[in-house]
């Protein structure tokens, strides 16, 4: 487990040096939100909370998928061999999951901010909403990092990534949509407890699977 911190700092440094990638994703997020604003806001003054949450999760899904997909797919072959030489596979996958979860959370927070500015803020229970964002980021990151590692080995990796990740994310997204609906309506916290536990359980399962199965993926 000692390899995790250096790998994490390496990811951060790489991201800091290649700021164009991060800026690209931020711009992508902005354009998605702006398209949502243009298509919905101009026609009517306010949109239903249900539509708000649907749009929000679609934007998050696409932005996170695009940013996390590059975690293994973009890496050059020689570079990955070097990483594998100096670190254990478990440390690599855990550091990727942590890094991607943080990235996904930052992206979701930016998306929330943009939505508040352009489309409005129907969220009544902000604490629950952010709790949902944290758990969902973790869930998306664990499944997507793992699938990105599989897809990186395939010949047409971007198609495979899209095909494999969509079904794997549905369980997480279903829970997230239900939770955010509760947060939008400002329901009591106890109502959402069940969904929170479920989301937590799904995250634990996908992280455990990634932890156990990743060593088999990179051995090639």
């Amino acid at each position: 487990m000692k390899g995790i911190l250096p790998l994490l700092s390496k990811e951060l440094k790489l991201e800091y040096r290649k700021q164009s990638t991060l800026a690209g994703i931020a711009l992508y997020l902005f354009s998605l939100t702006f398209i949502c604003y243009l298509t919905f806001k101009l026609k009517q003054q306010s949109i239903q909370p249900v539509t708000w949450s649907a749009l929000f999760w679609l934007v998050i899904l696409f932005a996170v998928m695009n940013s996390v997909a590059k975690s293994f797919i973009g890496e050059r072959k020689g570079l990955s061999i070097y990483y594998y030489y100096i670190a254990s596979p478990q440390a690599i996958i855990i550091s990727k999951i942590i890094y991607n979860a943080v990235l996904a959370f930052v992206l979701s927070a930016i998306a929330y901010f943009l939505f508040v500015v352009f489309i409005g803020n129907p969220v009544q229970d902000v604490f629950l909403f952010f709790l949902t964002l944290v758990l969902t980021s973790w869930g998306l990151a664990s499944s997507l990092s793992f699938i990105s590692a599989i897809a990186a080995k395939a010949s047409n990796s971007h198609v495979v990534m899209a095909v494999l990740s969509f079904p794997a994310l549905i369980a997480v997204l279903l829970m997230a949509i239900r939770l955010s609906k509760n947060a939008l309506d400002g329901l009591d916290f106890s109502v959402s407890a069940d969904e929170l536990y479920n989301l937590l359980a799904i995250n634990c399962i996908s992280t455990a699977l990634a932890y156990v199965l990743f060593p088999y993926i990179w051995r090639s």
Binding site: I150, A154, V160, L209, L213, Y216
Partner: peptide, 28 residues
């Protein structure tokens, strides 16, 4: 998606290993 994954992997050895990994994931 499991069958799509198998279709897009080229070497037999990789096909066996990666599709087995995804099989476990799919069942879960």
């Amino acid at each position: 998606a499991y069958f799509v994954l198998r279709g897009s992997l080229e070497s037999e050895e990789q096909k066996e290993r990666l599709s087995a990994v995804y099989n476990l994931f799919a069942f879960a």
